[in-house]
Amino acid sequence: MDLLLWRHADAGEGSPDINRTLTPRGLKQSQRMARWLDEHAPAELRVLVSPATRTRQTIEAWRSDYEINPAVGLDATPQSLLEAAGWPEAGGAVLVVGHQPTLGQVASLLLRDEDSALSFKKGALWWFQLRERNGELQTVLKTVINADLI
């Protein structure tokens, strides 16, 4: 199974939090990542997006077919996100567009089996892959892409 975690791009301040929108910088970050995804994303990809405006704007730079799922939203937990994605049993590929600290907590669980958080840059994408090697399941960090460096 492939699990791609994309943190929403740069957003402005505001309240309520769910209605915050992307800044001009955030729009550029989303467009850069969209170009990268055009070339590299798995062909069959399920996309789960937080209900927050900034996450929807982030994914809409690339595609319009996605599922809004509160389990990956502002109040998500690592467990709710992994369950929504079906990790690791679902197979295939899932892209989640979400938020810190949940994305960093998921990355920490997958890489270190620890209940801590790694830091995701705004607009960054982390791609994990579950594989079997010598009869053992392994989580592999396939790539980390910083939108500002594309």
Rank of each mutant, 00 (worst) to 15 (best):
D2C: 06
L3V: 10
L3M: 06
L4E: 03
L4H: 07
R7S: 13
H8W: 11
H8Y: 12
A9C: 15
A9R: 01
G14E: 08
T21M: 07
L22P: 04
L22A: 10
L22S: 06
P24R: 09
R25K: 14
L27Q: 14
S30N: 10
Q31V: 13
R32V: 15
A34P: 07
A34W: 06
R35I: 15
H40F: 10
A41Y: 04
A43Q: 12
A43G: 08
A43N: 04
L45K: 00
L45F: 05
R46V: 07
V47F: 07
V47W: 04
P51E: 02
R54I: 12
R54Y: 09
R56V: 11
Q57C: 12
Q57G: 10
Q57W: 11
I59D: 01
E60N: 10
A61F: 11
W62T: 09
R63W: 03
R63F: 05
S64K: 13
E67R: 09
E67K: 06
I68S: 05
N69V: 06
N69P: 01
N69A: 13
A76M: 03
A76P: 00
P78Y: 02
P78C: 03
L81W: 03
A84T: 06
A84W: 01
G86I: 02
W87T: 03
P88S: 06
E89K: 01
A90V: 05
G91N: 01
G92P: 00
G92L: 03
V94G: 00
L95P: 00
V96M: 04
V96D: 03
V97N: 00
H99P: 01
Q100M: 15
P101R: 08
L103Q: 05
L103W: 05
G104S: 12
Q105P: 01
V106K: 02
A107C: 10
L109P: 01
L110P: 01
L111E: 08
L111D: 09
L111N: 07
R112L: 15
E114H: 12
D115W: 13
L118A: 13
L118M: 15
L118D: 14
K121I: 14
K122Q: 13
A124K: 02
L125E: 09
L125I: 15
F128L: 09
Q129S: 14
L130G: 12
R131K: 05
R133V: 15
G135M: 04
E136N: 04
Q138M: 11
Q138Y: 07
T139D: 07
L141S: 05
T143V: 14
T143M: 11
V144Y: 12
I145L: 12
N146M: 14
N146Q: 13
A147Q: 10
